[in-house]
């Protein structure tokens, strides 16, 4: 997957998401999910990605159970869980196999998205580790002042407010500083934005895009005029 251009992976993400909507058989959806896991294994990603996927699988399972408990059939419950899993799996594969700057460059250069919006995407991802670290620091600081995450769900939610409040304030301050520093580093100037990223499409990209697009078109046609898929 790493050899494919970011745009190809972006398109593939959209295509797999469409497939997840078009298919309504749990077996086929499970097959697509299996295929994606195989793709992930070939891509060789870090163990943290697998941990994240395990969390996703648990969430999908929970979603299916909830659906079932609220009156859906087993088949529909499974389809809902698998759809969510398929849509998120491909997104994770894309993120794990592509540099964020390359995704941003593809969004700007090839999808013609204004660089400001594409930058927002990069910046949001860049600050996730910082945000988690700060959340840990605030939790620790608040535990010294009596914060506890024990008790029933309502109690926990109420006490978590003491963590959320300073966290939000810090995030706002950080974003203000960041906005100013961006100005100081020439972001948003009228000059033509350059990029170190290489995002050009190659033969293999065109083949993959064409094949998956054709399959998707066939699936859509089949959905509109069933011929037996």
């Amino acid at each position: 997957m790493r050899r494919y251009a970011p745009l190809t992976k972006l398109i593939l993400t959209i295509i797999i998401s469409i497939w997840a909507i078009l298919f309504d058989s749990p077996a086929i959806l499970a097959g697509v999910a299996g295929l994606q896991l195989l793709l992930l294994a070939i891509t060789r990603v870090s163990t943290t990605v697998y941990k994240g996927i395990l969390g996703l699988v648990m969430f999908a399972l929970m979603l299916a159970v909830m659906q079932y408990l609220f009156g859906a059939t087993i088949s529909l419950a499974l389809v809902t869980g698998l759809r969510m899993l398929n849509m998120t799996l491909i997104f994770i594969i894309m993120l794990a196999s592509t540099r964020i700057s390359d995704i941003t460059a593809a969004l700007v250069k090839q999808c013609r998205i204004p660089s400001d919006y594409a930058f927002m995407f990069t910046a949001a991802l860049r600050f996730i580790p910082d945000f988690l670290e700060e959340s840990k620091a605030v939790r620790e600081a608040q535990s010294c002042r009596g914060y506890s995450s024990r008790g029933n769900a309502f109690k926990r939610m109420k006490s978590y407010l003491t963590v959320v409040e300073p966290l939000v304030l810090r995030a706002v301050t950080k974003s203000e500083t960041m906005a100013m520093s961006l100005e100081l580093r020439g972001f948003g100037s009228q000059r033509q934005q350059a990029s170190l990223a290489h995002v050009a499409l190659h033969g293999r990209d065109y083949i993959l895009i064409s094949l998956t697009t054709l399959v998707t078109l066939a699936l859509i046609i089949n959905k509109l005029q069933p011929i037996g898929f």
Binding site: I100, S101, T122, A123, D130, T177, S181, L184, L196
Partner: peptide
């Protein structure tokens, strides 16, 4: 800036 961490906006050192 004083809060230099907020000044770092890219994912890698090179970027």
């Amino acid at each position: 800036l004083q809060d230099y961490e907020s000044q770092l906006v890219a994912m890698t050192v090179e970027e």
